[in-house]
Design a protein around this nucleic acid. Structure first.
Lengths: 196, 196
DNA sequence: CAACTGACAATACTTGAAACTTGTCAGTTG
DNA sequence: CAACTGACAAGTTTCAAGTATTGTCAGTTG
């Protein structure tokens, strides 16, 4: 008896997010997701081949939402490259920090999910590096930046700011000292890449 | 009946290192340390007030051994500051990487110990920042480096190289790409700090 | 007949009783 | 008498038994 809106993948993903938020990763089960939706757990398996695939999909959706706003900063060619790079790095740190401070347990849950689905994590990082490469490439073209290879430079900038975007360091992000530390690394990075 | 060399703190620390290496942190007990030394566990408590204090002492000893060689690089004023900073960063990464690759399980054990004894970790970082500050201060004085405040600059350099010294990233240190990534961050940092 | 379900085997997780560990101290020993 | 120990209470960890979860599929339903 299919009543109400037909069960679809998006509804299942949203229900899975709910369950992850309420129960955390270890206690979030496919049975609980199905219960939230008022269906049997077998129905969930008609849309996702396994719990792992479901978790991978929910992780991908979460990460892709989280780099949407960064894409806008990266694409805004009206702003000069130095400012654009500074804004992008600040936005990356701010987005992660806010997610962590808003709900540390949920942030930890997604941190676990990301580490369990390294393919998704790699795709996410590739996307971010693409955005960084674009900003740096624009800067080199306009003469603001000096770099032999924007792609390698992007990786170096990303690696140099690890402490401010890698979840392993999230427990430091609430401290005032960490905000200052970020400012100083951002200045260091921009000072390095700007042509002299 | 005290026979052989009297039981002293150093012997207990060495036995504790043995037990940590053989059993890992969760299964390393004071009883096992005592068994290794051929004494009762009550004897261990005559030298250390608690298991936590024992672990703190063993952690302090391990970290202080590990920054001994770095102190030499930092103090070698015969080498010019750029080279000295490059060598110091390379030595820091090399020391950590070798310890990790030599015995990943033991490295993880000490990583846990360090995180459980944050006071010791803070002291260790303060020591490393002191060495960095000295190199940068020398560079500013000789005109090789430009920096308003060597102490803040040292912190920024340390933070920018987090991916290559923080144990959370140890699982990447064996990869060839990571060595390249380190070279590029090291170049970025030196390019930033050198006066133009 | 497409969407869904109940029932099921295999595997993973919880739980509480037994075993072990920490830290103390009065007593032993050379 | 200083160094050490055995025995002990309080707290923590382990393990085996029961319980829950995953993933499948033949069968039901609108």
């Amino acid at each position: 008896m299919p009543r109400g809106p037909a069960l679809d993948a998006e509804a299942i993903l949203t229900a899975t997010e709910d369950v992850l938020r309420r129960y955390g990763l270890p206690k979030s089960t496919v049975v609980e997701v199905a219960k939230t939706l008022g269906v049997s757990h077998a129905s969930v398996y008609r849309h996702f081949p396994s719990k792992v695939a479901l978790h991978e999909a929910v992780t991908r959706r979460w990460l892709s939402r989280s780099h949407q706003e960064l894409a806008d900063v990266a694409a805004d060619t009206a702003v000069d490259p130095s400012q654009r790079l500074a804004s992008w790095l600040t936005a990356l740190f701010a987005a992660k920090r806010e997610k962590y401070l808003d709900d540390p347990a949920l942030f930890a849950t997604y941190g676990l999910l990301v580490s369990e689905h390294s393919v998704v994590a790699t795709e996410h990082i590739t996307e971010l590096l693409g955005q960084l490469t674009r900003i740096i490439g624009d800067g080199v073209r306009s003469g603001d930046f000096a770099s032999a290879d924007p792609e390698i430079e992007a990786r170096a900038v990303f690696d140099a700011t690890t402490a401010f975007h890698h979840p392993a360091h999230a427990d430091q992000w609430g401290r005032a000292e960490t905000r200052t530390a970020f400012e100083n690394v951002r200045i260091l990075v921009l000072n390095s890449i700007r042509s002299h």
